[in-house]
Amino acid sequence: MAHFALSPRRFGYRFNVVGMIGFAIILFWALIAIFGPFLTPYPIGEIVDFDYFGAMSSKFWMGTDYLGRDMFSRILMGARYTVGISLAAVMISCVTGVVLGMSAAVIGGWFDTALSRFLDALNSIPSKLFGLVVVAAIGSSIPVLIFTLAVIYTPGCYRFARALAVNINTMDFVTVARARGERIGYLICSEIFPNIVGPVLADFGLRFVFIVLLLSGLSFLGLGVQPPNADWGALVRENIGGLPFGAPAVMFPSLAIASLTISVNLLIDNLPQKIRDRSVV
């Protein structure tokens, strides 16, 4: 197979340096998510400082928040919610969206039309209204929050995966496979999926970012994370008043979000080529 030299191609399951860094940061946050609660120097709800938006100090490593609570402890605890909930939600929505999208493209016909219109309709319901209805109907808990986030992002995932799969579905090798009499499951797994995995992964990375940010919006509707706990987005939101002073209370959670989302996307972009480009073996 010819390899045009747009990028250095690597063989084997080898990570490049950037990918390693991304992976290390994700691993770091995952560990914090698990062990964070044992590391907090102060209870997260306790007001430890009379000052607010306090500066970084040896007592309060990341300053204090708008009430005078320790930011370092709050960020450690927030990791659990942000990393856990976002990863779970993005997994569910991407897996559902991609599987449905590929099925719709391969099966086509009424199945495709019905599913597409249904998900279009779902996507047209404003997410705030949807969130409120969920709180009213099911109540508030972490699984409900994950489910809501997943439902909100599935239609977008579906639409993108379907658009990709439709293009592949017209390729000769798929037509050949179909003529061979392969089952739909085979077509999806072996012919379509390997050829769209790159863009799908990129989509996964983006959706992860969106979910991390939407999470705080839904917590403010009263869905899921309850005070004094807060995810990182909520930490930024509640401390936004400190922005004019450049308070660490608003900077650190923002940095935490950025470091996590950028690493996830760097890791995806730098996955070993064998995973990314299975189309070109």
Binding site: G205, F210, S216, R237, A258
Partner: peptide
Amino acid sequence: IAVISVPEFM
């Protein structure tokens, strides 16, 4: 990615 990681209100 950095740009969309910053919440809109910020």
